[in-house]
Nucleic acid binder design. Structure first.
Lengths: 106, 106
DNA sequence: TTGACATGCAACCAAATGGTTGCATATTAA
DNA sequence: TTAATATGCAACCATTTGGTTGCATGTCAA
């Protein structure tokens, strides 16, 4: 579960929309997910494959249907391991930036 | 400051590395940032432009040098507005997934 | 069993991406 | 003033990306 795969998966607006869709209603099939998006089923399949590879979506085969489930764990890990450290020092960096800007502009 | 620009900016490992570098030492010049990365200065310039466009980096011109400062605000907003909602229901989704998996596999 | 439905797979294509090289401009220091 | 330094800009290129179309496979229901 590489962090790079997760970031790249989240980079596309369609894929974020798919995650939003699963967040609203978990366990949707491919066809159900296609209804909310204006592109071919095959394109959605590719997006879902990328989300699966990033471990952001898990699938369960149910007969001829395939249910898609949101897996928030990688997002949580990004938030904790990478975003967290920037948040932690947010105010420090901001005040630092402010100081610098004030020093430059008379 | 579109969320899409921020996500796409974060998608590239080199750009994340540049943010890490600025996190370690804020206010570095272009040349300083180039030293830690194995590519041409012009390539780094492009990456920094994308980070600037996403408002993740702010620059201050200082004579013939240009200082680069990390701006953690957009990351913070992502964490709050988008990642937060997945984190919030992380356990719910996990237990839901677990239930489903148990229902499928005898 | 057969037709309809849900998904899988592959070839193809345009556009975006990430990198290069080459040259121009602006500022500092000797 | 002149040479070195720091950055800017543009053209170009290979690869990746995001989408398409066409067809194959597997499963349910009548």
């Amino acid at each position: 579960m590489s962090m790079d795969a997760v970031f790249r998966a989240l980079a596309d607006p369609t894929r974020r929309q798919l995650l939003d869709s699963l967040y609203a209603r978990n366990g949707q099939t491919l066809n159900a997910l296609c209804e909310r998006v204006d592109m071919t089923r095959q394109a959605v399949t590719k997006h879902l494959a990328i989300l699966e590879e990033a471990n952001l979506v898990t699938t369960v085969r149910n007969g001829r249907e395939k249910e898609h489930y949101l897996n928030p764990v990688p997002i949580n890990e990004i938030a904790e391991r990478w975003i967290g450290k920037f948040e932690r020092h947010r105010l420090d960096a901001l005040s630092d930036l402010k100081k610098r800007l004030e020093r430059e502009e008379p």
